[in-house]
Protein backbone atom coordinates (compact mmCIF):
# COMPACT_ATOMS: atom_id res chain seq x y z
CA UNK A 1 0.00 0.00 0.00
CA UNK A 2 1.24 3.50 -0.85
CA UNK A 3 1.47 6.16 1.85
CA UNK A 4 2.33 8.88 -0.63
CA UNK A 5 2.21 9.14 -4.39
CA UNK A 6 3.35 12.07 -6.50
CA UNK A 7 2.49 12.19 -10.19
CA UNK A 8 3.87 14.51 -12.86
CA UNK A 9 4.59 17.32 -10.40
CA UNK A 10 5.63 20.51 -12.15
CA UNK A 11 6.76 23.74 -10.48
CA UNK A 12 7.94 26.81 -12.34
CA UNK A 13 9.93 29.77 -11.00
CA UNK A 14 9.72 32.50 -13.61
CA UNK A 15 10.56 30.83 -16.90
CA UNK A 16 12.59 28.01 -15.32
CA UNK A 17 10.97 24.68 -14.53
CA UNK A 18 12.32 23.75 -11.10
CA UNK A 19 10.36 20.48 -11.12
CA UNK A 20 9.44 18.98 -14.45
CA UNK A 21 7.00 16.11 -14.24
CA UNK A 22 8.39 14.52 -11.07
CA UNK A 23 6.80 11.17 -10.23
CA UNK A 24 7.48 8.87 -7.28
CA UNK A 25 5.66 6.82 -4.70
CA UNK A 26 6.41 5.84 -1.12
CA UNK A 27 5.01 2.53 0.05
CA UNK A 28 4.49 1.46 3.66
CA UNK A 29 7.91 0.68 5.19
CA UNK A 30 9.76 1.79 2.05
CA UNK A 31 12.88 3.91 2.43
CA UNK A 32 14.79 5.84 -0.20
CA UNK A 33 17.02 8.83 -0.77
CA UNK A 34 16.53 11.83 -3.01
CA UNK A 35 19.93 13.24 -3.89
CA UNK A 36 20.88 16.24 -5.93
CA UNK A 37 23.22 19.18 -6.07
CA UNK A 38 22.59 22.44 -4.24
CA UNK A 39 19.79 24.31 -5.94
CA UNK A 40 18.56 21.19 -7.77
CA UNK A 41 15.08 21.69 -6.29
CA UNK A 42 15.09 19.06 -3.52
CA UNK A 43 13.59 21.34 -0.87
CA UNK A 44 11.16 22.79 -3.46
CA UNK A 45 9.98 19.24 -4.20
CA UNK A 46 9.33 18.49 -0.54
CA UNK A 47 7.68 21.85 0.15
CA UNK A 48 5.40 21.34 -2.87
CA UNK A 49 4.43 17.89 -1.60
CA UNK A 50 3.68 19.40 1.84
CA UNK A 51 1.48 22.04 0.22
CA UNK A 52 3.62 25.11 0.78
CA UNK A 53 4.47 25.81 -2.84
CA UNK A 54 1.67 25.73 -5.40
CA UNK A 55 2.33 23.30 -8.26
CA UNK A 56 1.71 24.27 -11.85
CA UNK A 57 0.68 20.72 -12.64
CA UNK A 58 0.56 17.21 -11.24
CA UNK A 59 -1.21 15.35 -8.47
CA UNK A 60 -0.41 14.24 -4.94
CA UNK A 61 -2.11 11.25 -3.31
CA UNK A 62 -2.15 10.37 0.38
CA UNK A 63 -3.01 6.70 0.90
CA UNK A 64 -4.69 6.61 -2.49
CA UNK A 65 -6.76 9.75 -1.99
CA UNK A 66 -5.93 12.86 -3.97
CA UNK A 67 -4.77 15.84 -1.91
CA UNK A 68 -6.67 18.86 -3.19
CA UNK A 69 -7.34 21.44 -0.50
CA UNK A 70 -5.90 22.76 2.77
CA UNK A 71 -7.82 20.21 4.82
CA UNK A 72 -6.27 17.38 2.76
CA UNK A 73 -2.82 18.92 3.26
CA UNK A 74 -3.47 19.05 7.03
CA UNK A 75 -4.03 15.29 6.91
CA UNK A 76 -0.88 14.86 4.80
CA UNK A 77 1.27 16.93 7.16
CA UNK A 78 0.16 14.97 10.21
CA UNK A 79 0.69 11.63 8.41
CA UNK A 80 4.03 12.48 6.82
CA UNK A 81 6.41 14.12 9.30
CA UNK A 82 8.71 16.69 7.73
CA UNK A 83 12.06 17.53 9.34
CA UNK A 84 13.26 20.90 8.07
CA UNK A 85 16.74 21.61 6.73
CA UNK A 86 17.43 24.28 9.37
CA UNK A 87 16.44 23.25 12.93
CA UNK A 88 16.14 26.91 13.98
CA UNK A 89 13.13 27.18 11.67
CA UNK A 90 11.51 24.19 13.27
CA UNK A 91 12.17 24.74 16.95
CA UNK A 92 10.05 27.66 18.07
CA UNK A 93 9.07 26.71 21.63
CA UNK A 94 11.00 27.81 24.69
CA UNK A 95 12.07 24.43 26.07
CA UNK A 96 12.72 21.01 24.54
CA UNK A 97 9.81 19.49 26.47
CA UNK A 98 7.34 22.07 25.17
CA UNK A 99 8.71 21.63 21.67
CA UNK A 100 8.10 17.90 21.84
CA UNK A 101 4.61 18.45 23.25
CA UNK A 102 3.55 20.87 20.49
CA UNK A 103 2.42 18.33 17.87
CA UNK A 104 0.60 15.87 20.19
CA UNK A 105 -1.19 18.78 21.89
CA UNK A 106 -2.31 20.02 18.46
CA UNK A 107 -3.65 16.53 17.81
CA UNK A 108 -5.72 16.92 21.03
CA UNK A 109 -4.19 13.87 22.69
CA UNK A 110 -4.58 13.19 26.41
CA UNK A 111 -1.98 14.45 28.88
CA UNK A 112 -0.77 10.88 29.57
CA UNK A 113 -0.36 10.17 25.87
CA UNK A 114 1.57 13.42 25.36
CA UNK A 115 3.90 12.47 28.26
CA UNK A 116 4.36 8.98 26.86
CA UNK A 117 5.27 10.28 23.41
CA UNK A 118 7.73 12.81 24.83
CA UNK A 119 9.46 10.08 26.87
CA UNK A 120 9.64 7.77 23.87
CA UNK A 121 11.04 10.43 21.53
CA UNK A 122 13.68 11.46 24.08
CA UNK A 123 14.69 7.82 24.63
CA UNK A 124 14.91 7.13 20.89
CA UNK A 125 17.90 9.48 20.67
CA UNK A 126 19.11 9.21 24.30
CA UNK A 127 18.50 12.91 24.90
CA UNK A 128 16.54 12.66 28.16
CA UNK A 129 19.01 15.13 29.72
CA UNK A 130 17.88 17.86 27.31
CA UNK A 131 14.23 17.72 28.40
CA UNK A 132 14.19 20.91 30.52
CA UNK A 133 16.74 22.84 28.47
CA UNK A 134 15.81 25.98 26.57
CA UNK A 135 16.08 25.72 22.81
CA UNK A 136 18.51 28.62 22.43
CA UNK A 137 20.97 26.94 24.82
CA UNK A 138 21.29 23.82 22.61
CA UNK A 139 24.25 23.19 20.31
CA UNK A 140 23.71 22.85 16.55
CA UNK A 141 23.84 19.04 16.73
CA UNK A 142 21.44 18.90 19.68
CA UNK A 143 18.99 21.15 17.84
CA UNK A 144 19.14 18.84 14.85
CA UNK A 145 18.33 15.76 16.96
CA UNK A 146 15.56 17.58 18.85
CA UNK A 147 14.06 18.71 15.52
CA UNK A 148 13.76 15.05 14.49
CA UNK A 149 12.44 13.99 17.92
CA UNK A 150 9.74 16.68 17.84
CA UNK A 151 8.38 15.27 14.59
CA UNK A 152 8.44 11.74 16.05
CA UNK A 153 6.05 12.76 18.87
CA UNK A 154 3.42 13.21 16.15
CA UNK A 155 3.96 9.48 15.39
CA UNK A 156 3.67 9.97 11.65
CA UNK A 157 3.46 6.99 9.30
CA UNK A 158 6.24 8.39 7.13
CA UNK A 159 9.16 10.76 7.56
CA UNK A 160 10.78 13.20 5.17
CA UNK A 161 14.13 14.49 6.38
CA UNK A 162 15.77 17.38 4.56
CA UNK A 163 19.58 17.29 4.92
CA UNK A 164 19.37 15.62 8.36
CA UNK A 165 23.12 15.28 8.95
CA UNK A 166 24.03 18.98 8.83
CA UNK A 167 25.87 19.90 12.04
CA UNK A 168 26.00 16.36 13.48
CA UNK A 169 29.13 14.95 15.10
CA UNK A 170 30.27 11.31 14.53
CA UNK A 171 28.36 9.89 17.49
CA UNK A 172 25.06 11.53 16.60
CA UNK A 173 25.55 10.77 12.92
CA UNK A 174 25.85 7.05 13.79
CA UNK A 175 22.82 7.20 16.07
CA UNK A 176 20.76 8.87 13.34
CA UNK A 177 21.78 6.26 10.77
CA UNK A 178 20.87 3.48 13.23
CA UNK A 179 17.51 5.08 13.88
CA UNK A 180 16.73 5.52 10.19
CA UNK A 181 17.65 1.88 9.49
CA UNK A 182 15.70 0.51 12.46
CA UNK A 183 12.50 2.52 12.21
CA UNK A 184 9.47 0.78 10.74
CA UNK A 185 8.20 4.04 9.25
CA UNK A 186 8.47 4.89 5.57
CA UNK A 187 11.35 7.33 5.09
CA UNK A 188 12.54 9.75 2.43
CA UNK A 189 15.92 11.32 3.11
CA UNK A 190 16.75 14.35 1.00
CA UNK A 191 20.49 14.90 0.98
CA UNK A 192 23.68 15.45 -0.93
CA UNK A 193 25.79 13.94 1.89
CA UNK A 194 27.67 11.09 0.18
CA UNK A 195 28.62 9.50 3.51
CA UNK A 196 24.99 9.30 4.59
CA UNK A 197 23.96 7.85 1.22
CA UNK A 198 26.66 5.16 1.58
CA UNK A 199 25.83 4.44 5.23
CA UNK A 200 22.13 3.93 4.55
CA UNK A 201 22.58 1.89 1.38
CA UNK A 202 19.03 2.60 0.20
CA UNK A 203 17.57 3.14 -3.25
CA UNK A 204 18.67 6.55 -4.54
CA UNK A 205 16.78 8.95 -6.78
CA UNK A 206 18.63 11.87 -8.28
CA UNK A 207 16.98 15.20 -8.97
CA UNK A 208 18.60 16.97 -11.89
CA UNK A 209 17.28 19.66 -14.23
CA UNK A 210 13.89 19.32 -12.59
CA UNK A 211 13.59 15.60 -13.36
CA UNK A 212 13.82 12.69 -10.94
CA UNK A 213 15.89 9.66 -12.01
CA UNK A 214 16.33 6.34 -10.23
CA UNK A 215 20.06 5.65 -9.98
CA UNK A 216 21.16 2.10 -10.84
Amino acid sequence: MEVLRVEELTVRRGKRKVLDGVTFSLRVGEKFIIAGDNGAGKTTLIETVMGFIPAEGGRIYLKGREVRNEEDFYALRTTVGYVFQNPDDQLFSLTVEEELAFAPLNLKLSREEVERRIDRALKAFSIEHLREKTIHSLSGGEKRIVSIACVLTMEPEALILDEPTTGLDRKRFKRLVEFLKETDKSVIVVTHDVELIKSLGWKVYRLENGKLFLLP
Binding site: F52, Y74, R77, Y82, F84, F102, N106, L107, C150, M154
Partner: peptide, 8 residues
Protein backbone atom coordinates in the same frame (compact mmCIF):
# COMPACT_ATOMS: atom_id res chain seq x y z
CA UNK B 1 5.32 26.18 7.79
CA UNK B 2 7.02 24.12 10.50
CA UNK B 3 4.05 24.77 12.80
CA UNK B 4 1.60 23.71 10.09
CA UNK B 5 3.64 20.53 9.61
CA UNK B 6 2.94 19.64 13.21
CA UNK B 7 -0.79 20.10 13.18
CA UNK B 8 -1.02 23.81 14.09
Amino acid sequence: KAMLCRGF
